[in-house]
């Protein structure tokens, strides 16, 4: 574990060096991310100038969904950015080097690039989460907060599993750059409370692509709206997705043909 932390730290130092040497890119990317965040925030804020409820949720409750979506989404982009590079690695033959390295190939493929800008971006998101959390119109107990954090961790494990599935697909089916973007676009379903969607859409994004479990369940737990069955469902999904993704990754590696080397 210590060895992997040291490898990750070294890779992150390299990433910082890269960002510092590409200052224009780094600054404009960060501003771009802030602009995207600010516009959606503004849109959601504006909606509540016309109405006081969005599918039974008030302004701050809806904002809490949006901020939790951002927290999970940005966290994954910060620490799992390597998965976006795998296609290039395979095309250029670099993936063969990754397999030959004395570190776990899966770890390398997921974490070889740390997005420092997203780590910076996490700070205002966490600050806003605390601020909006204090504005929520209900009494938040310690148990609610613990459940929220537990389900957040569960959601993050599922997100890691989804990233493993996308990189396994990249190894198996080279023409797959849109898989990761399909996941990213699916995540946007979690920007808003799931009650706005139809039953069919909710079924798909709970049980087939578990975005609602990842984002909405922690928020519902904090708001005291999640049942014990919901909590158990999240745990079961975490285990099934994580171990299923690992098995799928192993299968994909066995089929890797090293065609570009």
């Amino acid at each position: 574990m210590r060895k992997y932390f040291r490898v990750w730290l070294q890779l992150s130092k390299c990433a910082i060096g890269s960002y510092l040497s590409n200052r224009l890119d780094a600054v404009t990317y960060l501003i771009g991310k802030l602009v995207r965040f600010a516009f959606f925030f503004l849109f959601l804020w504006t909606i509540f100038n016309y109405t006081d409820r969005l599918a039974s949720y008030g302004r701050y409750e809806a904002l809490f969904f949006f901020l939790t979506f951002n927290l999970i989404d940005v966290f994954a982009q910060a620490f799992l950015r390597g998965s976006y590079m795998l296609k290039i690695d395979i095309r250029t033959g670099w993936f063969d080097h990754a397999i030959a390295k004395p570190v776990n190939t899966l770890f390398w493929s997921l974490a070889r690039l740390t997005d420092i800008l997203d780590i910076l971006f996490l700070l205002p998101i966490i600050g806003l989460l605390v601020y909006v959390g204090m504005k929520l119109p209900i009494m938040i107990t310690l148990a609610n907060i613990v459940l929220y954090l537990l389900l957040l961790a569960t959601g993050l494990v599922i997100v890691v599993a989804l990233h493993i599935i996308t990189i396994a697909l990249t190894v198996l089916v080279f023409e797959s750059e849109n898989f990761i973007w399909l996941y990213r676009e699916s995540m946007t379903i979690g920007r808003l409370p799931p009650e706005i969607y139809s039953v069919g859409i909710r079924f798909v994004f709970t049980y087939l692509m578990p975005i609602i479990i990842i984002i909405a369940y922690p928020v519902k737990a904090l708001l005291g709206r999640l049942t014990a069955i919901g909590f158990l469902t999240a745990l079961i999904f975490m285990l099934v997705f994580f171990f299923g993704a690992l098995a799928f990754w192993r299968i994909s590696l066995k089929h890797y043909s090293s065609a570009s080397s």
């Binding site: 797959s176 920007r191 808003l192 706005i196 969607y197």
Partner: peptide, 25 residues
């Protein structure tokens, strides 16, 4: 073609999200 299909699926997700937001409102 697979990439093209995936790209269009992404579009459909955005469209559905916006449709349901306005339906709800």
């Amino acid at each position: 073609r697979l990439n093209l299909l995936m790209g269009r699926l992404r579009n459909i997700i955005v469209l559905l999200l916006l449709y349901y937001v306005w339906l709800s409102l």
